[in-house]
Amino acid sequence: MKILVPVKRVIDYNVKPRVKADGSGVDLANVKMSMNPFDEIAVEEAIRIREAGKAEEIVVVSVGPTKAQETLRTALAMGADRAILVQVEDDVDVEPLAVAKILKAIAEQENPGIVMLGKQSISDDSNQTGQMLAALMGRPQGTFANTVEVDGDSVTVKREIDGGLETVKLSLPAIVTTDLRLNEPRYASLPNIMKAKQKPLENKTPADYGVDIAPRLKTLKVAEPPVRSAGIKVADVDELVAKIKALGIA
């Protein structure tokens, strides 16, 4: 079985994002970029499935600028077998639907048993690509995976839902999106970083897959969250109740 793992290059989770002065987006100049943490979890899970002898090959794919090659190399150094970069211009933001269409086209060529995606990227928190891909391909989906168990021609996914875990059994091929507690990703070892340099990285464009990535949405304005104003201290319960009443909350 083959596993396809899409990965996205995003602002490192340790960096505090800053909004551009003109409000057109987030300032990415000279900001540390890393692999989306949920995607890292997806790569790790794919490697574990392969290590358990239930998959033979892991293909990582990124839709992004030239620099997304770094993200792919990191995935290769972790243990993925080969990579595909679907390259777009540096400042182009590809919306989830376009990414899902590209992934569908790649999946049709590669025929993976599982497409393992992060549940969302920390850059825009859309949480849509996996679900859209499942719909476009007409395949079952197990989103927000807490555990993943491959067994023959099916995969059992425990999903993190409000109030607990839901277990679903999907017949392969299927789409799985990973949640935070699925695993702890490994870091690349030096010998694997060296090996990763020899692994194939294919360069493609959205046009190669016949996908139009023109945005369907228009961003009007990006703004910093409003600064939270200071609270007030009340002396006792009576004063608290009076304040609440005065504010018209109760």
Partner: peptide
């Protein structure tokens, strides 16, 4: 150089 940058990222992740 990209190979050095990759080593840097891996060391940083470990640290």
């Amino acid at each position: 150089r990209e190979d050095l940058a990759e080593i840097r990222r891996a060391v940083r992740a470990l640290c």
